[in-house]
Nucleic acid binder design. Structure first.
Lengths: 247, 247
DNA sequence: TAAGGTATACGTCAGAATGACCAGTACCCC
DNA sequence: GGGGTACTGGTCATTCTGACGTATACCTTA
């Protein structure tokens, strides 16, 4: 087998090559009460009966991978407007599905206000699970979904630095504290509120003041100003991890 | 079709779902005479006869995607030791292969000293093509390989900043000028040699002096010191793009 | 109604990092 | 031996970052 000539996609012979099922799995992330959560569905059949799994489904030949991901997201959560829906990996280990050869293309979606969405979902057994519970091994995931969720989170940790994905976690208007909570939850760090503010408000095009204020929480405190996201998020992020807290 | 219940990979019925061929394509990048090059093979049959294509081949059910990528890389280039072999995307647009449903998982490989390797390759029609020629539209690529190559380059541009991939482009010992050429070629910028040196030599664990010197080129100049790569490359890169030259 | 608590808003300061630039060194070619 | 070239090493001004202190505006409780 090692002496076969270089095979490009050119020398097909449809009868010669193994068939795979291709699925699209979607790791749906959102902020809920200050912590990062992932939406999982509980499996109702074998294999992995009763285990949690990432929602997903089969790709159809007539649609692109991105279209399949968006379709599955809509079917699972009832929304067609995720702030972010990005492909981040493909998984095709032999035996990852005990029944057949399956290669899955994994997407990460970022939602805001997902609480109401889950309630209206078709999937009765969908739940928001804190990612901390998954990291602690407190949740049994089906298939290789533990690895998929882990890779998704790692991807978001990176993109928080290099893209404007942070803005996708907050609503159309938000306070700087809400935005800061995204960075703190995803990176697992604590950021100085004053310095965080300076990095964002001090520069151009990151946030646009709305003139309104948020109502303080039950603990009190000065009410925070509400902002809208500016244009700059399309070209990167305002906050960068220093090499110190990379590890 | 929109009212189907949420379908997880669980509710399989192997007869119900469309079969795909799964291939692995490898964008092989290397530095050659100061410019970034990609290794392409010329197709000898329809469709896209005579066009350039990214080397690749079919995934086997008994191997992982990473194993398939490494096997194809070996078959195409004769080396089993790419400095970097990283998955970066999946492509499954309908009709991307006119003959059948194909989803390809794309990898980017970084080689050093690829010149000698290509000579010994099985693929007689393999060539190193400057990426500048591809960007200019001077090369006709088969299938959706133009998009795949473009995405691979964009990925490397990002990873140059966030990972130690730059060290994969140079040999086991290298001069700072060689390393600087990698950044300049991939990012399309010019870096001050003195500041570049300071960013790398001034900090710990990036490069280890060997005590030897490189022979200057025909143009003369002071001979450069030869270094080995240090431990720090495993955890990121020493050079960061400022937001100014992001666009 | 007043006092205490809390979180946001804003400014200051020292240290680190960056970009621009200049001078010295060591080799090549002519 | 002289000029050209590229690496080495340094200075300087600017910007960025982390740390921290203080004022502001709302909440809760007494």
């Amino acid at each position: 087998m090692t002496s076969t000539p270089p095979s490009t996609p050119s020398d097909y012979d449809p009868s010669r090559f193994p068939a795979f099922a291709v699925t699209v799995d979607i790791v749906i992330l959102t902020m809920s009460s200050g912590a990062l959560h992932v939406l999982l569905v509980r499996r109702g059949e074998a294999p992995f009966w009763g285990r949690w799994a990432v929602p997903g489904g089969f790709k159809r030949p007539s649609e692109t991978l991105d279209e399949a991901a968006r379709r599955e997201l809509t079917e699972e959560t009832g929304v067609d407007a995720a702030s972010v829906l990005r492909q981040f990996g493909a998984y095709g280990d032999p035996g990852r599905d005990p029944r057949m050869n399956v290669v899955t293309i994994a997407y990460v979606a970022v939602l805001r206000d997902v609480g109401a969405i889950v309630a209206g979902s078709d999937a009765a057994d969908a739940s928001l699970i804190p990612v901390s519970a998954i990291r602690d091994g407190a949740v049994d995931l089906a298939f290789d979904h533990l690895r998929i969720v882990g890779d998704a989170i790692e991807r978001v940790r990176l993109e928080l630095d290099t893209t404007g994905i942070a803005a996708a976690f907050v609503g159309p208007t938000f306070t700087l504290a809400e935005l800061r909570a995204v960075y703190e939850a995803v990176w697992g760090v604590q950021l100085d509120a004053a310095n965080f503010r300076r990095s964002i408000v001090g520069r151009d095009e990151w946030v646009i003041p709305t003139g309104n204020r948020a109502r303080p929480g039950t603990a009190g405190g000065r009410p925070a100003e509400l902002y809208r996201a500016g244009r700059a998020w399309a070209r990167g992020g305002p906050i960068h991890r220093t090499s110190n807290d990379r590890k």
